[in-house]
């Protein structure tokens, strides 16, 4: 049970955060311990009442309306719900980036409860040793 996966969720667009949440789900299904480090635009999407509207990354702009309409029609859960479901299956920890949280002056209580703690890069990297790591 020592296998680990680390995901740095840098982007704040729905497609990339969904990809992160789906990969994390696949990882816990395979008994990996997972840690997700939300930073920059990923972190802003965890801010409660943050007034950030879900968007798609540049590649998806032309299909944006269609994709969001289909996701709504087919009840596709958002990335936070996906991560919550994955947390019920295995060991996933979500960490907010201390540096960006400081810059935006947000504290742990300002973030969605999916975020377990706010930690710095040093702690995240030390926790990521010997894990496969993705930057999304």
């Amino acid at each position: 049970m020592n296998d680990k996966m680390s995901i740095i969720a840098f982007s704040g667009t729905e497609d990339k955060l969904m990809a992160a949440a789906i990969i994390a789900s696949g990882a816990v299904a395979n008994d990996l311990e997972v840690q997700v480090f939300v930073t920059f635009w990923g972190l802003t999407r965890t801010i409660k009442n943050g007034k950030t509207t879900p968007d798609l990354s540049f590649d998806g702009q032309k299909m944006k309306d269609k994709v969001f309409a289909l996701m709504k029609q087919k009840n596709v859960p958002n990335w936070i719900t996906m991560l919550k479901n994955a947390k019920e299956v295995g060991n996933i920890k979500v960490y907010g980036c201390a540096m960006f949280a400081d810059l935006l002056e947000v504290k742990k209580e300002d973030l969605d409860p999916i975020v377990d703690d706010i930690i710095g890069v040093n702690e995240f990297v030390s926790l990521s040793k010997e894990s496969m790591t993705f930057f999304i």
């Binding site: 789906i22 789900s25 299904a29 859960p77 996906m82 479901n85 994955a86 019920e88 299956v89 295995g90």
Partner: peptide, 17 residues
């Protein structure tokens, strides 16, 4: 039914546990 990848697998693992 109606749930998307990875929803059904996650439900199965929860039930398995």
């Amino acid at each position: 039914r109606g749930s998307f990848c990875p929803g059904p697998l996650m439900e199965l693992i929860k039930a398995y546990k």
